[in-house]
Amino acid sequence: MSKMNLLQAVNNALDIAMADNPKVICFGEDVGGFGGVFRATSNLQEKYGRDRCFNTPLVEQGIIGFANGLASQGSVPVAEIQFADYIFPAFDQIVNEAAKFRYRSGDLFNVGGLTIRTPYGGGIAGGHYHSQSPEAYFAQTPGLKVVVPRNPHQAKGLLLAAIRDPNPVIFFEPKRIYRASVGEVPDEDYQLPLGSAEVVKEGSDITLLAWGAQMEYLEMADQLAEKDGISCELIDLRTIVPWDIDTVVASVKKTGRLLITHEAPYTGGFGGEISAAIQERCFLHLESPIARVAGMDTPYPLALEKEYIADHLKIYEAIKQSVNF
């Protein structure tokens, strides 16, 4: 075990993946000698050479197009998009190409080796072009897996699983807690399952569901609610697509209440999808309407960021409303 922050855990996972498989190749803007603007790829070029860890020109559609071709050739590309806010020039290569590569060829070809790493989320005074959480855009694209870790231990295990998963994976890294989140991380190679949510804490009155950096606010809200005598069950969804519906259903059938929180705007957020699916399956078990605590339907603000964030106090209020419905 070592104490690591989330960035170090990502770096450690990449290091292990590259040592383990010579076909793993890391690239993106500033990823090479500099080690990435957040330093997630530090020392990888030094260790594995310029052929396997390198800078690309500044062209997101090119980075993912290149990565798709490389994956179809049998390599295992780990492409970095510097900020999730800048993933949109690559939208076509992700949605029309990566996601459909295996399907459209009847499995003659696939880009299963592809992993796209990208920092997402707000709370860093980044304004609307360094704060977005675009996971829902990709959630409606069959063929992709979408994964978001909540802490260093999760980041390492999920990233290793993503790199080795035989499907293209978008791995959203919560940049607000890149350095703030520190924890014990096993030194060895390990993987955590994709498509599987984790019950982080058991409870009986209400199920609280989130992913990524939002889990921190969820835990803070839970501590407030606990003082009021409310017993919360906390679930980290971990994989947005394909999401672990069974774990959420089992929890809601037990607690009778569900609160979902995400950083992304309320309308069209993945919380809406979860809410709809859970009411279809748990209608007669629900004691109150499913609550959603999300970003407002505006571009991500700068000066008013603190007010905008779906923080622990907003979640705490929604917990009380749900329990007292």
Binding site: A67, N68, G69, Q73, E97, S105, L108, F109
Partner: peptide, 27 residues
């Protein structure tokens, strides 16, 4: 498309295969 003839399955969106070819050739 044909894997045995090394002919990538065709995709309707135009030009997407061009950066993919750069990546394939890098491999």
């Amino acid at each position: 498309g044909s894997s045995k003839l090394h002919y990538m399955t065709i995709s309707s969106p135009l030009a997407t295969q061009i950066p993919q070819a750069t990546g394939y050739a890098y491999g």
